[in-house]
Deep mutational scan, measured.
Amino acid sequence: MDPFVVLVLCLSCLLLLSIWRQSSGRGKLPPGPTPLPVIGNILQIDIKDVSKSLTNLSKIYGPVFTLYFGLERMVVLHGYEVVKEALIDLGEEFSGRGHFPLAERANRGFGIVFSNGKRWKEIRRFSLMTLRNFGMGKRSIEDRVQEEARCLVEELRKTKASPCDPTFILGCAPCNVICSIIFQKRFDYKDQQFLNLMEKLNENIRIVSTPWIQICNNFPTIIDYFPGTHNKLLKNLAFMESDILEKVKEHQESMDINNPRDFIDCFLIKMEKEKQNQQSEFTIENLVITAADLLGAGTETTSTTLRYALLLLLKHPEVTAKVQEEIERVIGRNRSPCMQDRGHMPYTDAVVHEVQRYIDLIPTSLPHAVTCDVKFRNYLIPKGTTILTSLTSVLHDNKEFPNPEMFDPRHFLDEGGNFKKSNYFMPFSAGKRICVGEGLARMELFLFLTFILQNFNLKSLIDPKDLDTTPVVNGFASVPPFYQLCFIPV
């Protein structure tokens, strides 16, 4: 058959498939802009700032609406009420993970971030239990974070109060905490193996944040037939998995079943207990991918939040002064901060919360999916439909947070200066898919920041009023603009 005829037939089939998918069930789905064949609503979305586009569309179609990214149908949730109703009140029905062709290629359905069903539930339950087990290797997770915080302070001392970009050092600290939990080992910041790991993690975040990856996920045929950065992403992930597998083999040879040292040991012990169960989800494949998931999810998000926190503290020296006064009063100079201190430091706690609220790190979270046909607000959402959640619409709700575009710790303080919780605080998402490392991340943010401010004054290279804190939105995360500062020993 003539190649031209084959091409026309293929394009015609794709067009018909697109029209059929977009028209099927439209009477039951939430409203939304009319999609174009094949490309859907992509032309109506700013790929570099999806969150802003969703906010604009919500003003037209309401808090629940339908979009098509290519052939992929998505239902968008915008605003606290619908997000709570879906992710919390109907948590089980909305607990699936959205379709990610690239991740599915890399992870093969294993791990904790992109798995679904029984596998996801069992691996998540085990990971939560293990991360909360403060007795691994007779050292609590808090001990590990405190140790890394001391190392971080010593690295900052080496800058000798000269101007520096904190990106690298602030990236090393949370990565080392995860390494300590998974591998029972922290690395020197100049260790070549550690630097290679950091390089792969950072490069992957840069790649994932590009519009090209959005295109690959919406048109998965590209993955096999086109060159691009997605190939580098898959190569980096394969490198990390190979490295983790080597460490798993080392653990198998040296493990003491009665004295687990780290996450890998705990997983291997669980595998041993379930070795007679042919349906067990505790396999080497799941261990390797879960460890890679924890490394990827637990490094860049925390380091970016820390980097943004220091920029905001530079911009608002009056806030920094209040935090340091609270540190001096509650902790002093002669001991290290600990998590028990947080309950006695409402202002510092409010500042950490406000940093996370203000920066809105992951504006749309990772997409969910419905696990069955769901009736939601008089609409029928078919099983498997991807759910896109606007966390921006919750964290920047102007009824809950007056002047949401302003950095103001009073958003989390009552009139008496006591810490005030808010149900709208969802930087880790909400419901059954809430970030498994939430507790660890909150511990790291509090301890790293208090250790830094206990030991250093922060000095800006320019007038604080002239510092730009506008986030650089890159399609996946909101990151701070480049800046330098000086760490002046107190």
Rank of each mutant, 00 (worst) to 15 (best):
S24V: 11
K459A: 10
V351W: 03
T159L: 14
L294R: 01
I327L: 08
T290P: 00
T392A: 07
L201H: 08
R377V: 03
T301F: 13
Y308L: 05
L77T: 01
I207H: 07
Q193Y: 13
P163C: 10
G439K: 15
T66W: 01
R125H: 15
K118T: 13
K249M: 09
E104V: 12
I269R: 11
L440S: 03
R26V: 11
C179M: 12
R433Y: 03
Q278D: 12
F219Q: 04
E400F: 04
E246F: 10
H353I: 01
A86F: 07
L67S: 02
L7E: 00
P480M: 06
P163I: 13
R26I: 12
V248P: 01
V208I: 15
I42A: 12
C175E: 01
S390W: 02
Y225V: 12
P260N: 03
N277I: 10
R186L: 01
G25R: 13
T304A: 12
F168C: 06
Y347G: 00
I88M: 10
K158P: 00
E92W: 09
Y424L: 08
E318Y: 10
C151E: 13
L77G: 00
L16V: 13
V83A: 04
I39T: 04
R119T: 13
L395M: 05
T290Y: 03
V394G: 03
P37V: 00
V6F: 15
T66M: 05
S95H: 07
N474C: 11
I45P: 03
M198K: 07
V145I: 10
F451S: 15
V374Y: 02
P260C: 06
N176D: 05
E400S: 06
S18G: 15
A430P: 02
V113C: 07
F376R: 00
Q252H: 11
C175M: 08
I42E: 04
L7N: 00
H353Y: 06
K420V: 15
D143C: 11
E318T: 12
F451P: 04
L128N: 15
G27C: 14
H316L: 05
E300C: 12
K249P: 03
K249D: 05
Q22M: 10
E354Q: 02
H251S: 04
T392R: 11
